[in-house]
Design a protein around this nucleic acid. Structure first.
Lengths: 343, 343
DNA sequence: TTGTATGCGTTATCAG
DNA sequence: CTGATAACGCATACAA
């Protein structure tokens, strides 16, 4: 294992100073002549030189590391999002340190600490539910935090989220307009703020239509297909008059549809099902799933853009962005419709 | 944004030398008296000192970063695995830089380069299919590579994988023993070596039982539920005599079952379905899915153990580990059985 | 047990 | 445009 070549080695071979080599590497414009740059590049390749990020970060106090801390890696929505963010950052030359808090605040804080130790330029955070403003304030001075999807109360930081209330309201209103009178709301956990927003939209759509809901039709379940199945099986053991299921997430909706099929009920005709997320599998599901989508690519783009803007102007006041979901009306919520046209 | 405190600052406040502070931080046993350590720890907390990994890595030439490069982040099997590996490494004090190659060799190589620039201690790699030994050799000298799940031809590196052939063989043999004569094999891509292994097991089980298979019943599809649905819809448009589906992955099996339900066929009784992976959703699916499982936690543990062993003894010859899958026989492959007993 | 001195590989400063 | 030199924060060999 031969020692790695250093800037000094390259400089020696190219017969220039190490400062010049550094300028070539850093691509600092107008600092070095074309001829010299050429010689340096040749030397770099001849020596198989590898840049040392640690030394550079130490000296310049600017790393190329972005921390990405998330609470859940088992939900495809998040993993697709991570993949997209990761790719966009890599394209800009940043490396991502990933951490998963597993909905554990202590673990999240320890990961945030880790990011600081590595001089992370910034941290992208989808926080645990019990995260409060004070938990972030400590880090925010050192590297800016951008939160997404889950808002943190009482803290001034950039936030990119989704207009959950409106999407749930629109979904529910349309189902009611379609004639449904007994609707269920399936999924989410008690501590979830997102769930509260979506559920509020569901309730308000009821109220505005002048119909009442049944609290027994509001069920919690964890974020998995089997949990969705189980919840729906339970629901129909108690009641049989529900005709529409508004699911908290697409994966819960998949599980719900699985349970309905299993019980011999026809999804789309007999019982309407809607999801939330716009997973790519929603369209190819049988029947295809009506869902409220904020394209993951769009969300990722907003997050990365906000990050870059924040790095440019650290002092600007934080901004809050709410992305509007597009509802894809598909067969799962209407017997014979199978298009993405908004109605 | 106040400047971060350094070892020197801590040393000054605690009235000791920087070397002593370093020893306290590094927890080097027996190097510092309890009284002094106490003073140093107080100073650290008083100054809100944060360790600088970059400086430490530069000086000692030993980072705490493990690279994790994977080809796919949309498959829950991989993301669950990543989450587990991540957690275990964090517990040992390592940070993980995650990268997703998206099955693109060039992108993978650029990420491996990134890991080197950060002085990654080691790299855990699930390589793209077109990765060959030479692609890894260049990095392997600097930081050892441990490959998993997908073998790389012609390269001597540590490898942790699954005995795919045997599991597929066992699954298929049992289905044949159950009386099935027309079996299909669904899923995987043409370039996949894993697929070849599993398919070979499927074929050999046929041969050993003295029955023949139909090449039209061997279908490719990508790794998603909807792709599985589509493949099965297509299969049954051509033929109707297939009674058992051996699916390449659990998610493909989920999609397949969705399609079967949709066509009004009874899974378990009329048509048997088996998966591969042992996703947690497999058990809660309706009907529950027969699958060949290597517990993700166990796999993660093997990978991390191998990594630690490699860091201990860099010169040991590389080792290849094949984990044996356990087959959970569940309702999807047998009308009324719903247990995990091997038969 | 504690302190002193040096260097890791890079970038920043300033002089030529 | 190029070069000499210092400094980033820490770990380590060695001296005390």
């Amino acid at each position: 294992m031969a020692k790695r070549a250093t800037v000094a080695d390259v400089a020696a071979l190219a017969k220039v100073s190490s400062a010049t080599v550094s300028n070539v590497i850093g691509n600092r414009s107008g600092k070095v002549s074309t001829r010299t740059r050429q010689r340096v590049l040749e030397a770099i390749s001849a020596l198989n030189y590898t840049y040392n990020e640690n030394a550079a970060t130490l000296r310049s106090n600017k790393s190329n590391i972005i921390g990405l801390v998330i609470h859940d890696l088992s939900n495809p929505y998040y993993t697709e999002l991570i993949a997209k963010i990761n790719r966009q950052l890599a394209k800009k030359g940043y490396a991502t340190i990933l951490a998963c808090s597993d909905e554990n605040l202590e673990s999240q804080q320890s990961y945030l600490h880790l990011m600081q130790r590595h001089n992370a330029l910034a941290v992208l955070l989808c926080p645990t539910w019990d995260t409060s403003g004070e938990h972030l304030a400590a880090w925010h001075d050192l590297s800016p935090t951008i939160t997404f999807l889950r808002p943190v109360g009482s803290h001034e930081s950039d936030f990119i989220g989704i207009d959950n209330y409106q999407a749930a309201y629109d979904l529910t209103r349309q189902l009611i307009a379609d004639g449904h009178r007994q609707l269920a709301f399936i999924g989410g956990s008690q501590s979830s703020r997102l769930r509260r927003q979506r559920l509020q939209g569901w309730k308000d759509a009821h109220e505005d239509a002048g119909i009442s809901w049944n609290d027994a039709h509001i069920l919690y379940c964890s974020s998995s297909m089997s949990a969705g199945s189980a919840a729906v099986m339970q629901l129909f053991q108690q009641t049989s008059d529900v005709t529409a299921l508004v699911c908290y997430q697409d994966i819960v909706a998949f599980g719900a549809m699985n349970a309905l099929h299993y019980m011999g009920k026809t999804v789309g005709g007999e019982i309407a099902v809607t999801g939330f997320d716009g997973l790519s599998d929603a369209e190819g599901w049988l029947p295809s799933l009506t869902t409220a989508e904020v394209q993951i690519a769009v969300l990722a783009e907003h997050i990365v853009d906000r990050l870059l803007a924040r790095l440019e102007k650290p002092q600007e006041p934080p901004s809050v962005t709410l992305l509007h979901a597009h509802i894809h009306w598909r067969a799962s919520s209407h017997g014979d419709v199978d298009s993405s046209h908004a109605r």
